[in-house]
Design a protein around this nucleic acid. Sequence first.
RNA 1: GCCGGUGUAGCUCAACGGUAGAGCAACGGUUUUGUAAACCGUAGGUUGUAGGUUCGAUUCCUAUCACCGGCUCCA
Length: 590
Amino acid sequence: MEKNNESLHILRHSTSHILAQAVQSLFPQAKLAIGPSIENGFYYDFDLTDGHAFSEDDLVKIQDKMIEIVKQNLTFEQYLIEDVEVKISEFKSQGEIYKAELLEEHKNDNPTLYLTKDKSGNFLFNDLCAGPHVPNTTYIKAFKLLKVAGAYWRGDEKNKMLQRIYATAFWTKDDLKAHLDFLEEAEKRDHRKLGTQLDLFSIREEVGGGLVLWHPNLATVREEIENYWRCEHRKRGYQIVNTPHIAKSHLWDISGHTSHYRDNMYFIQDEDQEYVLKPMNCPFHILIYQANRYSYRSLPLRLAELGTVYRNERSGALAGLSRVKGFTQDDAHIFCTPEQLIDEINAIIDFVSDTLSMFGMTFDVELSTRPESYVGTIDNWDKAEEGLKKALDVKGMKYEINEGDGAFYGPKIDFKLKDAIGRTWQGATIQLDFNLPERFGIKYQDSDGQLKTPIMLHRVIFGSMERFMGILIEHYAGSFPTWLAPTQVCIVPISNEKHTDFAQKVYEKLNAEGIRVKLDDRSESMNYKIREALQDKKIPYVAVIGDKEIEANAVAIRARGKGQIGVFAIDEFIVKLAQEIKSKGHEVIG
RNA sequence: GCCGGUGUAGCUCAACGGUAGAGCAACGGUUUUGUAAACCGUAGGUUGUAGGUUCGAUUCCUAUCACCGGCUCCA
């Protein structure tokens, strides 16, 4: 059997059968649901009908049992189900209701069973499965059970919650070890850990889950990114606006939020007037549009805002900076004519792609279509979905279709960013909306003199500042490039007594140039300060100052992760540092 | 919201029925350093919160808040 990526899925799927066999042998009451291969591993869902919950200890026992089964050198054999109805009732009588349900669905697809058989030809276990599998268990050499989690049968929260065991398998022990090492490495990059370690942000119980306190360090990173964002928007023809945090409920009745987004909204009662804490910025931008008359010549109108919104999330959904209740969207709304639409969408795709590639990030694209709860006519929705598809096709971008995942007012193009652990997060999104302009009755005057309804695009590049920072922290593993680093240079005098005066002058000089610099004149050893600055605080540069440097009017530079890189005249260092900062991520010094 | 797990000093962890201990950080002192952890000392906690069981609770039980791994949902 050739050992490539495709066959790895087969190996994993086969290992999942062994997992099921082990579980049923240790827990005869366990009923089998499904056990597919997934990216980086596989899982199997079980219904432990007696309410027992798999523990860490159980995982060890199950893993041992699997090793025992594998050692028996069993063969996998396919078996065609001849009488489906008989097998369904057999499954039912065994209590295998999930298998029965699956077989019922696949009864016209020539369903097969896979059996594991020992050397004497005894069948030990069977599972409804289309296959294929590895020929026998000698192929299964390197696997590990990772974690237990709850999962709804068929992913529907109306169904029973099953217990899912996540695991992984590889062709060799070395491959397995490499993957486990990767997971460990990813854990170190977790933005929540780095957030504490680097004093970036905190989330306090007293404030509430999903509400972020930005510490000075992360606020600095954000400031740099926002400055870049503003500058880039002006270049690309956007105008920047600001809008309030609350508005009367009536505004959200017009937009449709009170009926389609209610569960996510916070309401504020003020005497007999009800207000809503804004979950989105769009209605405000529409009102700004309404303040003036527009013609086809003056469109597109591009309004951008770093708008802070609040959304009530289901309690289990919150996660670090990735999923919060209060967040700032780098939002924009573009009002345009149908003729301008494709160019506008393409310009946004370029904007997203330019921005993400500046950070060296990769992304996948998805097109999300009409959800169950929506406003507007099917005709408008079809037009909108076609428009987005056309724009993506013109760009030649590859994308997946995500049925029913659009916003309630329009379909969207989503850009999925990967975090350190390989989880994907929605970052940038472009949403095409024929509906809100109609609901608010906004118009423009076309070349034929007629008043027409403009098309509206909602879009974000970073998604939210919070989530993007989370991804950024993990992306850089906390070692921000110089332009973003909260502290860019740490000055370390070798002897406080002899060198601090000069170090102070260097500090003032760098500070006057707008460089984020710190002088470490604590009574600590030089080695300690260097280690703390470079390793713990992940500051890009340490400037060491001693007799020789004072003599030469210079600084000895040590760079994060690189060690000593040389002695620079102070002015030369400043020039190079400024170049590096300006380059936004490209290393100049060294 | 659901399933499972976890909340002990600023951080990382220990003790697990007999009223809490370490390392790092902090603070004080000594040291003044030539390139990734100098030395000594001090202080710091109603063990997330509220109830309950018990002679006695950080430890057991219940509720609640928060976090973690997932599911569902989403920027």
